[in-house]
Design a protein around this nucleic acid. Structure first.
Length: 350
DNA sequence: AAGACGGGGTA
DNA sequence: TACCCAGTCTT
């Protein structure tokens, strides 16, 4: 038996049960694929169930407020996925009468749908013969053929796509694509793959050459930037605080947070008190300020470390907010979509 | 071609 | 710690 057949046989015997495997409804497949981008099944599953529960159809999602979508997405990360998800739902509901595109080429035009996701939807929903190449596929192919071209190089992307084209079973693209991904996730794992019991261990080139553990090759590690976040936690009569939506570029776009003073390095109370944002908020307002915890809370993103401190500012009258900030009752703050860093603070403090 | 973009799991 | 996860978009 050859590679695709063995893979499919293995898949039919070992696949996990997942809700999106019970359907070919493009709405549900699309939703699951967006959620699962750079995300483990175990982490994405509850979000998928929640989204299907709140938005059973693409029209329900299209009619939602972005803030509500972001709130449901809270904690999953890569929030542009949620914003693009909403944009695409509105586009399909309003411009395509709720009907998804049915080809790889047309699916690729949707916001948030790249090469992988367009291939996944086209093959799973419409049996189009297009190979998916995700992290699992890179790993399986690089090992099976002992290819050391970096998977994140232009050459590597091209090369592995070509290999995937050569391997895909044109009679059952949907099953093959899911099989190779599931195989990578469960059997040909990044660390400690089960080569001893692998159905492909008699023909795996990397196993033969002893290079399994070092494949696939990936270029460069990004250097992590340090940032210093000083958050101002207002407590007006112990019942209100100030919250603000992040706008523009950068992390956490359109999510909410507390008023923020970002600095180049560690600063103290004196710096905060002399900061213009701080002074404009508290112009002629009596306040009491304390540093919540001496130690930094270090929030680690993949590409930056946020050295975070929270300053508690108690007042008896409302600060002087401008149009960008909102004074909100403490009982309402959990309704806003916030990054995990802020959510954790809210849970520990309020 | 290289960066930006989250948060959590695993060894 | 370091690496990885059913990647995509921007610069």
């Amino acid at each position: 038996m050859i590679f695709p057949k063995k893979l499919i046989t293995w898949y039919l015997q070992n696949k996990r049960s997942m809700p999106w495997r019970e359907t070919t409804d493009p709405y549900r497949i699309w939703l699951s694929e967006i959620i699962l981008q750079q995300t483990r099944v175990a982490q994405g599953l509850p979000y998928y169930l929640s989204f299907i529960d709140h938005y059973p159809t693409v029209f329900d999602l299209a009619n939602a407020k972005e803030e509500e979508v972001l709130k449901l997405w809270q904690g999953l990360g890569y929030y542009s996925r949620a914003r693009n998800l909403h944009t695409t739902a509105k586009y399909i509901a309003n411009n395509l009468e709720g009907v998804f595109p049915t080809t790889y080429k047309d699916l690729l035009q949707l916001k948030g749908v790249g090469d992988y996701t367009a291939s996944a939807i086209a093959s799973i929903c419409y049996n189009e013969v297009v190979p998916v190449v995700d992290g699992n596929v890179y790993r399986v192919l690089s090992r099976y053929f002992n290819v050391d071209t970096p998977i994140n190089s232009t050459q590597g992307i091209k090369e592995f796509k070509k290999l995937a084209w050569e391997m895909i079973d044109p009679e059952q693209p949907a099953t093959f694509n899911q099989a190779i991904m599931e195989f990578g996730a469960l059997q040909c794992k990044p660390q400690s793959p089960y080569c001893i019991v692998c159905p492909l261990n008699d023909s795996c080139e990397a196993l033969k050459k002893g290079t399994v553990a070092s494949l696939p090759i990936k270029l460069k590690k990004l250097k992590v930037k340090k940032r210093y976040f000083n958050y101002l936690i207002f407590s007006v009569k112990d019942q209100q605080t100030i919250i603000k939506q992040r706008k523009g570029k950068g992390i956490w776009q359109n999510l909410y947070e507390f008023p923020l003073i970002e600095t180049e390095k560690e600063v103290g109370l004196d710096y905060i008190k002399d900061n213009d944002v701080f002074k404009s908020l508290l112009n002629n307002v009596d306040y009491d300020i304390i540093l919540h915890e001496t130690e930094f809370k270090i929030h680690k993103l993949s590409h930056q470390h946020l050295y975070t401190r929270f300053y508690i500012i108690k007042t008896e009258e409302p600060p002087k907010i401008n149009g960008e900030s909102n004074i909100v009752g403490i009982e309402k703050i959990r309704e806003y979509p916030v990054p995990i860093l802020i959510g954790n603070f809210i849970d520990s403090f309020f």
